[in-house]
């Protein structure tokens, strides 16, 4: 599942190839239901994916898609009803201490560290808890403090820092260990634009320097695009796509074209809708802009149709979808399938 030709559906995911030999994380058939009877909610439904060593995978999905439950199940914080999770080939439910020996996590909405200790004391404490003699990674800690703009605050109690700085300390305390598999749930939550940019840049640099394997949950598409090699998109507890960012953006060859004219009336619009996948229609005074998703042949067919009806075009543009468009399109598709 490392490289896909097209976005995978959940059915594809279930029938996926064997995970690569160097997979740091393998999730297979993970399912979790909460409550029972009429109140039962399927939070995670037969989720399978793998993450190659040294790669960064983004876990995307709308609220309630099952991302956090999936991460918590991987980390053993939630016990699944079915499925298995292997980290470095070790079953996390059978040998948790061994499986999590090189794993750390930053969970959404939690402090993840001690606010009454200083930034530096947190780094030393969590390095030790993570299984590393803190004296042996003191230089790494200094670099981390520099990279995350925390050096000046290193000896201040975390409780006295701003929300954004606390978020950075939380991330730093995770990276302070010698973990080589890291889970980050909303690492840029609460950060201003500049801090978010700095953090995503430094995060990518640290990931590359230390060849970290990262699973990153975020609602911020810019973070996903900037940091992740691959994206797993979830909806309604299932994996609905699993692909590289590039493949997701290029899709199946379909592009979006926008034509605008004052001559497009309701009858013509109906004919366009009959022959093409219209993704948006906007009007600005007498001018109508129609956006269609089609390939190059379809585009020529559209221009032929417009020419045959003597429409004078004001403009013709291509509209390249961004990750958010892809995400929205896929999750809408997921809604339709249910």
């Amino acid at each position: 599942m490392e490289t896909q030709e097209r976005p995978q559906t959940s059915a594809d995911a279930a029938a996926t190839d064997d995970p690569p030999d160097d997979a740091a994380l393998v999730v297979e058939g993970l399912s979790k239901r909460f409550a029972s009877g009429e109140a039962a909610v399927t939070a995670v439904d037969d989720v399978s994916f793998s993450v190659g060593r040294g790669s960064v995978v983004g876990l995307l999905g709308p609220n309630g898609a099952g991302k956090t439950t999936t991460i918590k199940a991987i980390l053993g914080m939630v016990l699944p009803d079915a499925g298995s999770v292997l980290i470095d080939g070790i079953d996390v439910y059978e040998q948790p201490s061994a499986a999590y020996a090189n794993v750390d996590a930053m969970l959404e909405g939690a402090r993840n560290d001690y606010w009454r200790l200083t930034v530096r004391e947190n780094l030393r404490y969590f390095a030790t808890i993570g299984g590393v003699d803190p004296d042996s990674v003191a230089d790494r800690h200094e670099r981390l403090l520099d990279q995350l703009d925390l050096a000046e605050k290193a000896d201040e109690a975390v409780r006295d820092l701003s929300r954004g700085m606390k978020q950075k300390v939380s991330l730093a305390s995770v990276l302070a260990t010698d973990a080589d598999v890291v889970f980050l749930d909303e690492p840029t939550l609460g950060l201003d634009v500049e801090s978010s940019l700095t953090l995503r840049r430094e995060l990518r640099r640290i990931v590359d320097e230390r060849a970290l394997t990262v699973v990153l949950c975020s609602h911020d598409m810019d973070v996903i695009e900037a940091v992740c090699d691959r994206v797993v998109i979830m909806n309604d507890g299932r994996v609905i796509a699993d692909d590289t960012v590039e493949h997701l953006l290029s899709g199946d060859g379909t592009q979006r074209f926008a034509v605008a004219s004052s001559d497009i009336d309701d009858a013509l619009l109906a004919r366009i809708r009959d022959g093409f996948e219209v993704t948006a229609v906007t009007t600005d005074g007498e001018r109508t802009r129609v956006e269609v998703a089609t390939d190059s042949e379809g585009f020529y067919a559209l221009t032929d149709l417009l020419r045959s009806t003597d429409v004078a075009l004001d403009s013709v543009n291509t509209a390249q979808p961004d990750l958010e468009d892809v995400f929205l399109g896929l999750t809408d598709e997921g809604e339709g399938r249910r």
């Binding site: 001690y114 009454r116 030393r124 030790t128 003699d133 990674v137």
Partner: peptide, 27 residues
């Protein structure tokens, strides 16, 4: 480590005890 040539040493139970007791003492 891939960067910096630093060699992380594994923590022993001594390090763990020190970390937990020092945290308690500091607080």
């Amino acid at each position: 480590t891939p960067s910096g040539g630093e060699t992380p040493r594994p923590a022993s139970y001594y390090h763990l005890a020190r970390a937990v007791l020092v945290r308690e003492f500091l607080l």
